[in-house]
């Protein structure tokens, strides 16, 4: 039984990083405003959201299975508090950190209409921190580190995200490269001292 938990934890962890990779790439795709991957814009956006929710389910399974696993000796507060674990605290701590960031990103996204676009966007940028932390966590911890297949999957994920980020930073990313940037004119901010 305990072996089954361990196998499930490892498997769900690997599937999670693959899903999160897909989520990140779809997120970048939906930011472009171009129909990406042969899909209309709104479909990219919906797929991004649904893949993210699926990834959350997998990550939750990953964490819950470890909670009951005798090897990992995960305590409840290890789910929230990084780098305090008994089993490979640094590598496990990265997992906790990625999990915390993921929860923040998901919760703010679900409450987006209440929080406002600005707060949501600032928190959403943490995805660029969450994903690499999760990837490194997967490479460093568990009994699969050093196996050729985990390295292959991880490198494939890294290459995919790197390519997407490269596209994001390229000039061809925006649909309308010649479009003027929206920015409040500085002259409207001047001379605003209260006189009395």
């Amino acid at each position: 039984m305990s072996d089954a938990l361990w196998y499930f934890a490892r498997g769900s962890g690997v599937v999670s990083i693959v899903l999160l990779t897909i989520v990140v790439v779809l997120g970048i795709g939906s930011r472009s405003g171009k129909p990406a991957f042969g899909l209309p814009r709104f479909a990219v956006s919906l797929l991004h959201r649904n893949a993210a929710l699926l990834a959350v389910v997998l990550v939750a399974g990953h964490v819950i299975s470890l909670l009951f696993d005798p090897y990992a000796q995960l305590r409840l507060f290890d789910i929230v508090l990084p780098f305090a674990g008994n089993y490979r605290p640094v590598w496990q701590g990265l997992g906790t950190l990625a999990f915390d960031l993921l929860v923040a990103i998901i919760v703010t996204s679900l409450l987006r209409h209440r929080l406002g676009a600005r707060t949501w966007r600032v928190v959403h940028w943490l995805a660029y921190l969450c994903w690499p932390v999760a990837l490194v966590h997967g490479l460093g911890t568990g009994s699969d580190n050093g196996t050729w297949w985990l390295w292959t999957i991880s490198i494939a994920c890294a290459v995919t995200v790197a390519a997407a980020v490269g596209w994001r930073l390229s000039t061809g990313f925006s649909r309308f490269p010649a479009r003027a940037e929206r920015r409040v004119a500085p002259r409207l901010r001047k001379e605003l001292e209260e006189v009395r």
């Binding site: 930011r31 405003g33 709104f42 956006s45 479009r179």
Partner: peptide, 9 residues
Amino acid sequence: DGRGVCTEL
């Protein structure tokens, strides 16, 4: 920001 989601939907 003219992302174009609404014009599709």
